[in-house]
């Protein structure tokens, strides 16, 4: 079994166990304000890190390429309150334009 299958199945199993555990534990266990706060902060941290790593690295090397243009356009679209599909599509189109024609 290769890394892709391990990641696919491992993630799926844990994702379900997390969801199911939420439905099964007493409410008071996870309703502490600190837990709630950590819960809102973790996605912010991980998703921001993923944006950065996916935009500016290739394996373990840092680099700047057409993805910087795509990311900038995505950010502009979000500032203009564009819906998610427009954000992704405009990033892809601008990045592809730079890659193909510059």
């Amino acid at each position: 079994m290769n890394a892709y299958w391990i990641a696919t199945i491992g993630t799926s199993v844990i994702a379900f166990l997390l969801k199911y555990s939420g439905h099964s534990v007493p409410e008071k266990w996870l309703s502490h304000p600190r837990i709630q706060r950590v819960n809102t902060l973790i996605p912010i941290a991980l998703l921001s890190a993923l944006v950065a790593v996916q935009s500016f690295s290739e394996k373990s090397a840092l680099m700047i390429d057409q993805r910087l243009v795509g990311l900038s356009v995505a950010m502009l679209a979000l500032m203009l309150k564009a819906p998610f599909p427009v954000v992704v599509l405009s990033a892809a189109l601008s990045s592809a334009a730079v890659y193909n024609w510059l």
């Binding site: 892709y4 993630t11 844990i14 969801k19 939420g22 973790i42 996916q54 690295s57 394996k59």
Partner: peptide, 29 residues
């Protein structure tokens, strides 16, 4: 995985993001 990470790193990151679903479960149950 696309960035060259191991499957363990991938599963860990995904699971940390999935933690919030557990809290939604607590609200919905």
């Amino acid at each position: 995985i696309g960035a060259g990470g191991t499957s363990i790193s991938a599963i860990t990151t995904a699971s940390l993001l999935g933690l919030r679903n557990a809290l939604y479960g607590v609200i919905m149950a």
